[in-house]
Amino acid sequence: MSKGIKKIGVMTSGGDSPGMNAAVRSVVRTCAYHKIECYGIYRGYEGLIEGDFVKMDARSVKGIINKGGTVLKSARSKEFRTKEGRAKAHEQFVKAGIDGFVVIGGDGSFTGAMVFNQEYGFPVMGIPGTIDNDIVGTTHTLGYDTALNTVVEVIDKIRDTASSHNRLFFVEVMGRDVGHIALNAGVGAGAEEILIPEEDLGLERLLDSLRRSKQSGKSSSIVVVAEGDKIGKSVFELKDYVEENMSEYEVRVSVLGHMQRGGSPSCFDRVLASRMGVKAVESLLEGKSNYMVGLKNDLIELTPFDQAVKGKAKIDKELLRVSDIMTV
């Protein structure tokens, strides 16, 4: 291991996701293992600019592996997007003697880290923390697995009501630009239809699908809708359209919202966070910088920030085919 880095900072940035605390714990304890000082940076880049740091050791992170959210808090920083703001951030690092940092967040957080590295050559590593699973370079982002389990559990409960009252439910899940949550949770929960941004189903095809479900003997249906789906202006517009054209259905809408980002992380996310934290710290100590750690073929590997933030995670076409078959 390189002896160049003596103090490492760790922050959580952007939207929270289950597993962030487990990643903070892993970073802190890996630093302790290698006898490197570690500082928690509160409120992401905003806290960095203000020098809101706290020294952390192995005992500082006890009892957080099972907690959702982030003990370091998170915030979005407009000031860090300016050169003046990044200059203040660099001054705070120099003042504290921190010579490398780990940012846990999404593509916006990585973009900020990449620009900061370009301007100051400051060593940085990224850990992908977002439930959307929309970052290139990893098959799973932290929180994605937990969010899927949360959504499937809720849909299972909604189906009980749908079956009892012969209702059609539109269930909106997160996914502004990608449909990973909708597709996987839809298949896992046995949804009759899945609407995602990557596939323009069209209103008429949606009606045809619902009619086939009705004709096949189904008395109730669940349609999972990613919030970024382009068929209608909103899930409520879809509800109105179906009610106008299929009066035999009593239609309800359930928007799951931020409950998908909360809750205790799954075992998968806890283990993934632990592996990623170790890789991030040890990569910094090896002299590497400007990379995101990610899961590929069950191995923790590095992807350059520019590839991670510029690429777009592709939807699983085979799973789309599976979903079509399952709706027969």
Rank of each mutant, 00 (worst) to 15 (best):
E318D: 06
M11C: 11
K314P: 12
G9I: 09
H140R: 09
R59G: 08
K7W: 08
S323L: 14
D177G: 08
R252D: 02
A23K: 11
S209K: 09
V151E: 01
I36E: 02
F80W: 10
S163V: 09
E91L: 13
N166P: 06
M114L: 13
P304S: 02
I5W: 11
E204P: 03
A182N: 06
G15H: 01
E91G: 13
G228P: 06
K7M: 08
S264A: 14
V171P: 04
V271T: 12
G40V: 02
D99R: 09
N245L: 05
K310P: 01
A191M: 03
R167M: 09
A308W: 05
I8A: 08
R211Q: 11
K88F: 09
N297S: 12
D208G: 07
L168C: 00
S274P: 03
K95L: 07
D156E: 09
Q92S: 08
S164Q: 04
G202P: 01
V235Y: 01
D132N: 09
A280W: 14
E119Q: 15
K95T: 12
G186Q: 05
E248P: 00
Y45H: 06
F53D: 11
E244H: 10
E119L: 13
Y39N: 10
N184C: 12
A185F: 05
D324Q: 13
I325C: 03
F116D: 13
F93H: 11
K239M: 00
I127S: 13
K312A: 09
D324F: 14
I155H: 01
V255R: 04
L256H: 00
G14W: 12
G51M: 05
L72D: 15
V251C: 10
G100I: 15
H258C: 10
F80R: 00
E37I: 04
F122S: 09
E193A: 14
E248A: 01
S2P: 06
I49K: 00
S109D: 03
C38G: 10
T111V: 02
Y291D: 00
I127R: 14
E91P: 05
T12I: 08
S274Y: 02
I231F: 10
K214C: 10
Q215R: 15
A191V: 13
K296Y: 04
E250H: 12
L272V: 15
Q92V: 02
H180E: 04
S77I: 06
A162P: 03
R252I: 02
E50I: 02
G126C: 15
G129T: 15
S77P: 07
F305E: 00
E79W: 06
D134S: 07
N66M: 15
N21E: 12
G108N: 08
S283G: 07
R321E: 12
A185C: 04
D324C: 15
S74D: 02
T150R: 02
I8H: 00
S60H: 10
